[in-house]
Design a protein around this nucleic acid. Structure first.
Length: 299
DNA sequence: TTTGCTGT
C-alpha cells in the first residue's frame, strides 16, 4: 500500500515537477516548529507598491474587479458570483479554479447553511452540467471549492457556493477532516492578514503504471461522468497587515483519506508546482516570473 | 464548529 506522501510525490514527479516538491517533503526535523519555519521559508513574499486597505463590509458584494486584483489564472468560461469568481471546465463538469476573498467581514453574519441545498448550475449547458444524481451513492462528497462558511456575510453569497459548478467529487474523509482543517486555517489567517485571497481547484496528475509509462487516470461518476480529481490545490494570497507586501502559500492534497495528525505544512508545495500541473498561472499581475521563480525553486 | 451523507 502506497502512502499519501509517495502517491503525491510520484504524481508530481510524473509531471516533471519534482525539484521543488522533493526538497519540501524530504525535510524531517525533530521539532515541529522548526519544520514549520522551514516550510514557510519556501513561501515567496512579494513587496507591493502603495498601502493596501482592509476590505470593509460595504465592499463585500461580489465585484470581479476587487476579487480578481491579482489576475485571472485562466480565461475560459469565467463566471462571477456574489461570493467567488470561477472558471468552469465543461469537459470535467467541475471548476478549473475558484477565487474568493476572505476577511473578518466576509466571515461574520447570519447566513446559515441549513438554508442551502446543492443545486445544478443552469448557466452550464446540460451536456456539461453536474447534477445531484451524479453524486448520489457515488461514495464521494460534494466538496465545496469556495467554502460555505467563508461567506456568512450574506445568505445569497452562501447560497451561491452550493452550485455544483463550485463542487468537486471529494473523498468524504478528506473533505470532513484534513481538507476542512485547511479551510479553517484560511479563515483563521484573516486575523493575521489584512485580506486573504484563496484560489481552489482540482488537479488530475499523472502516475506511473505497471508498464512504466505515465498516465492521467481518473474516475468519473454518475450519468454525466463528473470527473473525480486525483488531487486538490489551494493557493493563498495573504496581504500583510502593514499593507506593504503579499505572501503566497500553496497546498496540494491527494483526493484520499489523510490522517488528521499530519501537519498542514507538509502539504505545502511551490506555486510553480501547481502552475505546471494545472495549466494555470497565479497572480500574473504581481509575479515577476524569472526572478521570483528562481527564489522559490533554488532555495 | 463545519464538513457532509442517507432515509423518512
Amino acid at each position: 500500500m502506497r502512502s499519501w506522501r509517495s502517491s503525491v510525490l510520484s504524481a508530481l514527479l510524473g509531471a516533471g515537477l519534482g525539484a521543488a516538491a522533493v526538497r519540501l517533503w524530504s525535510f524531517e526535523g525533530p521539532h515541529e516548529e522548526a519544520r514549520t519555519a522551514a516550510a514557510f521559508s519556501h513561501c515567496p513574499v512579494i513587496p507591493v507598491p502603495g498601502i493596501i486597505p482592509r476590505v470593509q463590509a460595504s465592499e463585500l458584494t461580489g465585484s470581479p474587479g476587487a476579487v480578481m486584483k491579482y489576475g485571472f489564472p485562466s480565461l475560459a468560461n469565467v463566471k462571477s458570483r456574489d461570493s467567488y469568481i470561477t472558471s468552469y471546465d465543461p469537459r470535467t463538469r467541475t471548476a478549473s479554479w475558484v477565487i474568493e476573498r476572505l476577511s473578518p467581514a466576509s466571515l461574520s453574519g447570519s447566513a446559515d447553511r441549513k438554508c442551502c441545498t446543492f443545486k445544478e448550475d443552469d448557466s452550464v449547458h446540460v451536456f456539461h452540467r453536474a447534477t445531484n444524481e451524479d453524486y448520489r451513492g457515488s461514495g464521494f462528497d460534494r466538496g465545496h471549492m469556495a467554502a460555505a462558511a467563508n461567506h456568512k456575510w450574506s445568505q445569497k453569497a452562501m447560497d451561491d457556493t452550493f452550485y455544483l459548478s463550485n463542487v468537486s467529487p471529494q473523498n468524504p474523509h478528506l473533505n470532513q477532516n484534513t481538507w476542512n482543517n485547511l479551510e479553517k486555517l484560511c479563515r483563521a489567517l484573516t486575523k493575521r492578514y489584512l485580506n486573504v485571497y484563496v484560489c481552489t481547484g482540482p488537479l488530475y496528475l499523472p502516475r506511473q503504471e505497471a508498464d512504466g509509462k505515465l498516465y492521467v487516470r481518473y474516475q468519473v461518476i454518475g450519468p454525466n461522468h463528473v470527473a473525480v480529481p486525483t488531487h486538490f490545490f489551494k493557493v493563498l494570497i495573504l496581504e500583510q497587515m502593514d499593507g506593504k507586501g503579499v505572501e503566497l502559500r500553496s497546498y496540494v492534497m491527494p483526493n484520499e483519506p489523510i490522517n488528521e495528525r499530519v501537519p498542514l505544512e507538509r502539504f505545502l508545495v511551490s506555486i510553480e508546482t501547481i502552475e505546471r500541473a494545472s495549466g494555470l498561472l497565479f497572480v500574473p499581475n504581481i509575479m515577476k516570473r524569472t526572478s521570483t521563480l528562481h527564489a522559490i525553486t533554488d532555495r
